[in-house]
Design a binder for these strands. Sequence first.
DNA 1: TATGAATGAGTTTTCATTCAT
DNA 2: AATGAATGAAAACTCATTCAT
Lengths: 202, 202, 202, 202
Amino acid sequence: MSISERKNRDKEIIKEKIVNTATELFSLYGYEHVSMRKIAEKIEYSPTTIYNYFKNKNELLFVLLKHGYKLFYHSLDTARKDNEKENFDRKLKEVFRAYIEFGLANKDYYKLMFMMNIDSDDSLMGCENEKAKAFSILMSLAGEGNKHHYFINSNEMLVSQIIWGQLHGITSLLISYQNFSWIPNEVLIGNYMESILIGLKK
Amino acid sequence: MSISERKNRDKEIIKEKIVNTATELFSLYGYEHVSMRKIAEKIEYSPTTIYNYFKNKNELLFVLLKHGYKLFYHSLDTARKDNEKENFDRKLKEVFRAYIEFGLANKDYYKLMFMMNIDSDDSLMGCENEKAKAFSILMSLAGEGNKHHYFINSNEMLVSQIIWGQLHGITSLLISYQNFSWIPNEVLIGNYMESILIGLKK
Amino acid sequence: MSISERKNRDKEIIKEKIVNTATELFSLYGYEHVSMRKIAEKIEYSPTTIYNYFKNKNELLFVLLKHGYKLFYHSLDTARKDNEKENFDRKLKEVFRAYIEFGLANKDYYKLMFMMNIDSDDSLMGCENEKAKAFSILMSLAGEGNKHHYFINSNEMLVSQIIWGQLHGITSLLISYQNFSWIPNEVLIGNYMESILIGLKK
Amino acid sequence: MSISERKNRDKEIIKEKIVNTATELFSLYGYEHVSMRKIAEKIEYSPTTIYNYFKNKNELLFVLLKHGYKLFYHSLDTARKDNEKENFDRKLKEVFRAYIEFGLANKDYYKLMFMMNIDSDDSLMGCENEKAKAFSILMSLAGEGNKHHYFINSNEMLVSQIIWGQLHGITSLLISYQNFSWIPNEVLIGNYMESILIGLKK
DNA sequence: TATGAATGAGTTTTCATTCAT
DNA sequence: AATGAATGAAAACTCATTCAT
């Protein structure tokens, strides 16, 4: 590994450290309540240092969101691929589960990505592609279902929007209202997914 | 109307003006991004004046949320009562529609109440009752359905949580992503509700 | 009593109420920490009302100080007169005691009058006369002592300044440091006065 | 001097500048009347800068008082040590003089330390040790005097409290009432101290 | 590359005070 | 005489950000 390569790697490591810390803090206390100073303190660098890696707080958020969308896409994509050979019913279910579980396992990211409405800021438009890619998985599943005449409704767009709505609903509520007296997760989520499928299937 | 009555009314009018403006701005830019000064400017009073009506920014939020929850409860309750005599299917659907339409007609409130996770602050616990009351409508509908053996699932809590999740899903997405290429509202919402019902019915 | 007399009396009563409350609060929390609103609340009037009786906060302080100086003068004067016939030694001691006891019994006033250096404000110069009158008692005692060749030092001004310094010393410390581990008051004050007298007597 | 040493020194210089200015202003106008902004203006920095050196206004006061108590202790201690070999009479007098002269030479500090009753705030308890140390000098002198059977009174605590009261009396009055028609300082202070000594000596 | 120093703009909030009634 | 409504001025403090080194 050349010196410049090493340097690049070091740089990436620090960048990642910053992004991870920021993600954690943003989601824990909310974007507004986390100051650059607090991020810096946590990683034991000076606040100024962060500016050597990110133009400003907004860019940090941008990078972080992009990363989040990538992870999210990857989760759904993996679920789909891992069940490529299974029957469609099963595949669908596993992708649904992947969606919800991503949210619960990455509350930080899910909040920032889908619940805080943060990227309506003009400055963050760049993330849209990544987001679209993730949504496209749901779209393609709807398309695939249609080929099998699986859904009651043959409009792919409509089906995928319904699915998204339903998946987002339970995921975001479970994240927001952690102290609510929810039915145990496994039971709730299992039944919820079942309900979605029945509601859509022919 | 006596003088003191008129005065009281004037006071209420200003209070309402403040609450409305705050609601709008909070929902538009987020609670943290809206300063007392900005609210004051919009209503063309001095910042100090707001403090003559509300102890502090937090209390303003508190009052506002309480108001929102009341409106919300009222919307659902009206829908239920107006369809008391209808068959259960119809009644359910109308309450669902009332939920979603409340959100779309009162985006500001819906955001503040259900999407910004703002009232996890201890200081706002007083609102919880109003919120619980609203949720209890869904609960009682689930109970009513059970009496008729309407739902596939006889656990009222489970049913109402599934319903809430699904209603919240589409409502919050439509609010958050207004620029997304949604299927026309009437079509989308109609099909969405249909899908929910099928998914739950025996 | 005529109507206008009654009105005047009422007015005086309220004025006094304000002054008393202000005195108490000023001394308790410090002039700066007491807002007009707090005074008003305590007497259960609106803040505006105070302005019907006093031009502003400063004038309130002014009146209050004037009142304090009067009380103070009266205390010393009474002690002197009550002991007119006693031997000079005794008379002196009783006036000393009156000084210290006034301070301890009226910590509020004593602080405002002699410890907060408040009336160096130009606006309060009017009080000076009252203060001077009080000090003149010490002066005249020094003069009286000299006639009897009582003091080691025949300069009246010098003697009275020494006395004032000594009396003020213990009084202000006892007020300021109430939690200090003082010798019991009676013992301390008795010995203190003894010490002063011995130090001055021929 | 290394670079880091120089930096440290620079930092200390600014800190000192802030402390000095604050001391002057606090004593001149009172702690409450001096805003961070005013201090900043005087040293020609931005208000924010002060917060880079002191956590908040209270800490600034705290540091300042601690410094004052140290100076005060040092003054008395020096006077005592410088006169270790002298007879007790002389030593006592010189320490008395040191007390009074410290007050007159450091009016700002003396006011803040002993006249403004500022450190009864819980937040400032840390200063108490320094204050106690200063008072302990008077105590030890009283003890020393007792060994020689110097004082009329053998209770050390009592003697030291009397002394403190008397020293504080003249010091604080001279500071507070600078426009009063005092006997010339040297005369007044000389006689005052003489009077104290006579009053205490056997 | 990393950072100490500095700051302008902004925050919530409090207060003395005025004015019309 | 009493007061509700309104405000300008100021307070302490925080933050994202820049700059020079």
